[in-house]
């Protein structure tokens, strides 16, 4: 019961935050609404026993990417957005209806292709969603790929610093 309550609480806040992000007129507060939304989604992952992806969601999206967003917003000094009254609501309605029809079509196509879509039970999620399971295969089966990805990121960092800094020497 508590899990259901938590789900509805987090889902409601997430939807409210998403709407808040859309209607906020100030880019910075819009970004902050998005942070709240991402936190709630991380909470949803946690209630589904996908602990690793929940933590990563907070670290990567709510942390790193949002900081980047805020930097860009503050550095670019964005102009004020159009007021809600200026938005053409018929276009918004048309977009929503179009998306609904697209979703229906995609569903029909997906059923026609017989893509197996089975709901994941909480037991399955607990088995596969933890950091331990992931780490076990990352550091054994995919150890070589992990090391090479480390080299890739190092090369990218070195390259960025070299290209950006060397000009001023």
């Amino acid at each position: 019961m508590a899990a259901q309550f938590l789900f509805f609480l987090l889902a409601t806040v997430a939807v409210a935050a998403a709407i808040g992000m859309l209607v906020a007129r100030n880019p910075v507060s819009s970004a902050l609404w998005l942070v709240l939304n991402l936190f709630c989604i991380a909470g949803l992952y946690l209630t589904m026993n996908a602990s690793f992806i929940g933590v990563i969601q907070i670290l990567v999206y709510a942390g790193a990417i949002m900081v980047l967003f805020l930097f860009v917003i503050m550095l670019l000094n964005l102009q004020a957005l159009p007021r809600p009254g200026d938005i053409e609501w018929t276009k918004v309605l048309a977009f929503v209806l179009g998306m609904v029809i697209l979703a229906q079509l995609m569903y029909v196509v997906a059923v026609g292709l017989d893509v197996p879509i089975e709901p994941v039970t909480t037991a399955q999620a607990a088995e596969t969603g933890s950091a331990e399971v992931l780490a076990r295969s990352l550091f054994t089966e995919y150890a070589l790929h992990l090391e090479m990805a480390g080299i890739l990121l190092l090369a990218a960092t070195i390259g960025a610093v070299m290209l950006a800094q060397r000009r001023f020497e």
Partner: peptide, 17 residues
């Protein structure tokens, strides 16, 4: 295919720079 992808990206990123 994972080796293909990781190798390809490591090579490409270095070449871009």
């Amino acid at each position: 295919l994972i080796s293909v992808f990781v190798g390809l990206e490591t090579m490409s990123i270095c070449l871009y720079i």
